[in-house]
Design a protein around this nucleic acid. Sequence first.
RNA 1: GGCCCGUUCGUCUAGGGGUCUAGGACAUCUCCCUUUCACGGAGGAAACACGGGUUCGAUUCCCGUACGGGCUACCA
Length: 518
Amino acid sequence: MTHKQVRTRFAPSPTGPLHMGGVRTALYNYLFAKKNGGDFLLRIEDTDQTRYVEGAEQYIINALNWCGITIDEGVSVGGPFAPYRQSERKELGIYRDYAEQLIRSGNAYYAFDTAEELESMRKRLAEEGNPAPTYNFAVRHSMSNSISLGSEETKSRLNAGTPYVVRLKVEPGQTILLNDMIRGEVSFNSDIVDDKVLLKSDGMPTYHLAHIVDDVLMEITHAIRGEEWLPSAPAHAMIYKFLGWEDRMPRYAHLPLLLKPEGNGKLSKRDGDRLGFPVFPLEWTDPSTGEVSSGYREKGYYPEAFVNMLALLGWNPGTEQELFSMEELVNAFTMEHVHKSGARFDPEKTRWFNEQYLRKKPTNEIAERISKLVASAFELADTDHRLNSSYLEKAVELLRDRVQFEQDMPIVGSYLFKAPTSYEEAVVAKKWKPALLPFFNDLNNRLSHCSPFLREPIDAIIKECASANGIKTGEIMQLLRVLVSGQGGGVDLIGMLELLGNEEVCRRLHNGLKAMPQ
RNA sequence: GGCCCGUUCGUCUAGGGGUCUAGGACAUCUCCCUUUCACGGAGGAAACACGGGUUCGAUUCCCGUACGGGCUACCA
């Protein structure tokens, strides 16, 4: 018995930037495919021309790229089943062929109803107390379609060029069973399935027809999508059956949704930055309004951290491991461990993930990346010694456990690159006494002669100087810090002095002492 | 409203008839380390929605209720 090669697809609609829920769907598709030695495809479902957004498709590709989700086949890379863009496939007449096949077999029909007629039908039904006014078996006979009109009238309308749609003909009274990979068996009564539009009046297929045709033609084996599709799944099962494709139907998996951190509802694109965190992987500028939505990348998140966080939102490895590389995710991923219920997104934990990855990053890489940031933030010349890799690397070592993002380093450790211009008042008020001036002058003098200017000798000098002046180190350590850095807290004090070097330390000490109240 | 799906600490989750005195992580609190702030370490508080079954025994299985979510378009 030969197993079919596993093939999954991510099939977004280019109606704007991909939000993190979409990224997670792509990720799970990717992980599942890779775990099973299969392929991951990208198909663009651009069948709604009215919602097409310029740049959205490229954004999707860029986002997947940034996340390290590699596309084996599809838009941007091509493949044997091209084209992978539904608008282009429509030009080939692919969908119309199948819609017509369904009409011939009596499982679909032409409908000529106008938008106004549909609206008044729903209104009428609602007034009659119908809990779910839909176009279905109960109303199709009173609407304008090939069933109510008969073949003659239908033909003449078609010939006259009357706009029409093709609708699925759903027979009532049937039970449709679905075997979902995550939810197990789910059952529906066909009475509640409406006569869905399959082909729109502009000739484009709807999602319902298009995804099925393409999944079969592209030999997709597993359709992993969001839970919002579950209610239309019975209609999809019927289409497979009517097209004679029951044995080619992929297995479906309906993923739980990502919920807002607080309040109600699923996380949506509209949430944007309103909630204080990005919902998009990459920054996005709306082409029509110019409105900018922030992205995880621009906020300084590592893609590994973002992906790791997303993977664990709705899935777990069954072990207590939390940090996963993409490769480890692939190995550990199973659909059995995907949760059924929605997962509330937690921005705080996302930051924690980033922190974990920051800890593991090689120092020289970080130093290289923050170099430009430092240069511009402190207006340093290219030749400035503080931009030397050895200086930057030491700064990174001092700062790395204190920040969650690389770009916070120059902010949190500004005093490593710039002499203070003010001195934390609370500390000065509490600890400074003019009587300490002789001690600090002595210390400054001793430090100026300290060579090599390294941790041990610096430490020794401070202690010697304190005892020579009859002062306890506890009285002066924090003052020393404030005098040199301006702040009452910060990186390891001796490490900071060592990095700054004795010239700089002595200069800062000198200026600091002048600024102290007499 | 109707249909479908779901419900373990505040959050993400482990566990799925007895091993549960319900485990981990984030957040939170306390202490230690650190003459600072973090990091780190130790510890604490914190959950099986409720009601009925089934069973010798239910957090685990079934039913109902409540609550949450999704869908209810010529959008995906």
